[in-house]
């Protein structure tokens, strides 16, 4: 009995310690930015690795998701004689929910797992230690640029996801199902609000960008420096960040609808 209580207490302390470590990591990543000229080049490299390289999967997924939402929406709406409202349906669901959430999930799978593996590998092969011994702070040199790269890439990817998904819906609705293009766009324009719908979706994606990148960096940095440890870290990155994205999405949506 006493043993179980002790184990529970130890588990609790371990969990709190992990959050503490993750917090210190985030603090270091945000506030120990290297000097501007060098840091800028490093951040650009990371926007490339995390953003540009994720672009293809994001765009292809967006196209299909837009098309499928349009197809489903059209058939459901036409039962109520409201198929003219397809534009608003697609635009609102993409801009408010699908865009930020699906982009974040894909980002976690593509860029997040790569980040965790890369940093775990750098740790396992003593690259981080040798950097420290060369008087170069790994938080500043390795973690910070990756954090800012993810922070910047995620909203940009979300914006591109949104536009591609809406274009996919346009292809299905207008080109295939023969809706009137003018009605498609004008109904969309009159029911989508720039601030409430599009900007709020982008705010969400900024939060997701911070969270997913943070989880990936922490899992990599804290990985057990063996092959099994790295494999674990990448799996955990995808699982934890997907859960965090979906949970946070609910909280953020509730806050936004509650006129926060």
């Amino acid at each position: 009995m006493i043993n179980q209580v002790e184990a529970l207490g130890r588990l609790g302390i371990d969990v709190i310690r992990k959050y503490g470590k993750a917090g210190i990591l985030l603090y270091g990543a945000i506030f120990r930015v290297p000097n501007f000229r060098k840091g800028f080049a490093l951040v650009v490299q990371q926007i490339f690795a995390e953003g540009v390289l994720s672009l293809l999967i994001i765009m292809v997924s967006a196209l299909f998701i837009g098309m499928v939402v349009a197809l489903q929406g059209y058939h459901t709406l036409s039962k109520f004689g409201a198929s003219q409202q397809l534009g608003p349906l697609v635009a609102l669901s993409v801009a408010r929910e699908l865009g930020p959430v699906v982009t974040a999930l894909l980002f976690a799978g593509r860029a997040g797992s790569a980040l965790a593996a890369e940093i775990g590998l750098m740790k396992a092969t003593d690259q981080l230690s040798s950097m420290e011994m060369m008087a170069v702070d790994p938080l500043q040199r390795v973690i910070a640029p990756r954090f800012w790269g993810g922070f910047i890439s995620m909203p940009l990817l979300t914006i591109i996801f949104n536009i591609v998904a809406i274009y996919g819906a346009y292809l299905v609705g207008v080109k295939w199902l023969g809706m009137d293009a003018g009605a498609f766009w004008s109904n969309m324009q009159s029911s989508v609000e720039f601030h409430a719908d599009i900007l709020n979706g982008i705010y969400k994606s900024v939060v997701f960008g911070v969270v997913v990148t943070w989880i990936a960096l922490y899992q990599g940095y804290d990985a057990v420096p063996t092959s099994a440890g790295i494999a674990n870290a990448t799996t955990r990155t995808v699982v934890y960040s997907s859960l965090a994205v979906l949970g946070l999405d609910f909280v953020l949506t509730a806050m936004m609808i509650g006129e926060w």
Partner: peptide, 17 residues
């Protein structure tokens, strides 16, 4: 500053891949 005056060679080399 002290570490700038030290060099250390790790077992695996620790080269940046």
């Amino acid at each position: 500053n002290l570490r700038k005056r030290m060099g250390m060679l790790f077992q695996t080399g620790g080269l940046f891949t």
